[in-house]
Amino acid sequence: MNSNSEVKLRQFRDTLELAGKGYIFIGIWNVIKIFMTYTMQQSLMDELISDLKAQELSSKEINATLIFAFAFVSLFIIMIHFYIGLGAIKYAREKSVKKGYLVLSVISLVITAGLLPLYFLGADYGGNGVDDKDIASILVDLTMIFIFVDILYSTHMIKKHSATADDKEAIAG
């Protein structure tokens, strides 16, 4: 009941479940950020609208395009986050053995880590250097990287200690 493998299994399952929940919350936060951008960041919206006006679209068409674009992006983000998060949670609770969430985790980790330097290269539009908004975004991205690493590590350790626990059961049996 309290062998090293069993204790470690509980610990890493708990960690994996927590990481999964954390990633889902970050996904919800990203959608809220998108909504806030759509409703409050006037300069960005003006730029987008002027780009669309250049294509000779009516106001209604512009609005519809913007709403559709933001809804599509939000949905895509939520789906990714929930797929990874729920996959991790189900694996932690032993309700699933599928590890598809790991593939997406690795891809997301590479993308997030790869894009991190862009904050410092001034590649974001409308700004020079790193401002407060960027610092907040960097912190969130670092948190996501930590969560990805945690998910990968915890999954690996669960697999390792499950094998050890199974071996011990087989020997005891």
Partner: peptide
Amino acid sequence: YRYMPAWNDYRIIV
């Protein structure tokens, strides 16, 4: 009964 308290580092108590 058995349960897992918060302080026991994932160890179960009987």
